[in-house]
């Protein structure tokens, strides 16, 4: 075969590969079985998609919470030590020290259900039944003054529960709100009259040194 013919063929092959035709399948992997998908696909969305059958009351949730959760998160969801607070913090988001809890900050209650079910208790994930996750979620919603003490949370009524901070989230707007950072030519000479030191890390002095892992902040 001539070199020219070879090149032509190569170009033809390249054109085939680059064509927008449906992607050629590699034929790798195997179909996932329904049982396998059910075992791993446990995620829940704000519209309730993915919620399993089940229910749990605030009262049931209180007992479970005290047994499985309170040692880290506090008896009332206030958080023990450095562990996260789950309740409280209402009205703190504009302040000096925002406390971002399920009630004060989280937009959707399904997130709590999904997260507890997949990752809690810390160090013993996936150990709660679906009814237990419903009950603990109900208890936490009650601790955050979102539902009454006699509330029973279920797959059927889940999406009727709304959290107070839902509307406070909006999409990334940096390209509008921070448009002024796209300045093609930044200042190079005599950009400001003076540069004064206004803060020093060594005054705070929390950087770890050898044998001293830094201050414990509780």
């Amino acid at each position: 075969m001539s070199r020219f013919r070879k090149a032509l063929l190569a170009a033809f092959a390249a054109a085939l590969v680059a064509s927008p035709a449906p992607a050629k399948k590699a034929g790798l992997g195997r179909p996932a079985l329904p049982e396998e998908i059910a075992a791993w696909d446990i995620d829940v969305r704000p519209d309730g998609a993915g919620l399993p059958p089940g229910r749990g009351s605030v009262k049931q949730g209180e007992a479970l919470y005290l047994a499985r959760c309170a040692s880290c998160h506090g008896e009332f969801g206030e958080g023990a030590g450095r562990w996260p607070a789950l309740a409280g913090g209402h009205g703190s988001l504009r302040g000096e020290a925002p406390e971002k809890t399920i009630g004060s900050f989280w937009p959707y209650p399904t997130t709590a259900f999904d997260y507890i079910r997949r990752a809690m208790p810390y160090g013993d994930a996936r150990s709660l039944s679906d009814d237990e996750v419903y009950a603990i979620t109900a208890f936490l919603l009650h601790q955050n003054d979102v539902v009454a003490a006699d509330f029973v949370l279920s797959k059927e009524n889940f999406t009727t529960v709304r959290l107070p901070n839902e509307a406070a989230f909006y999409g990334d707007d940096r390209e509008q709100a921070e448009r002024h950072f796209w300045t093609q030519e930044p200042c190079m000479k005599n950009c400001k009259p003076d540069a004064k030191i206004t803060g020093r890390a060594r005054v705070i002095d929390v950087t770890p040194e050898d044998g001293n892992k830094g201050l414990k902040v509780e």
Binding site: D43, I102, W106, Y108, T111, D114, Y115
Partner: peptide, 11 residues
Amino acid sequence: DQPWHHREETS
């Protein structure tokens, strides 16, 4: 067809 709004993209 829509985002999940899970813990690592809300809290």
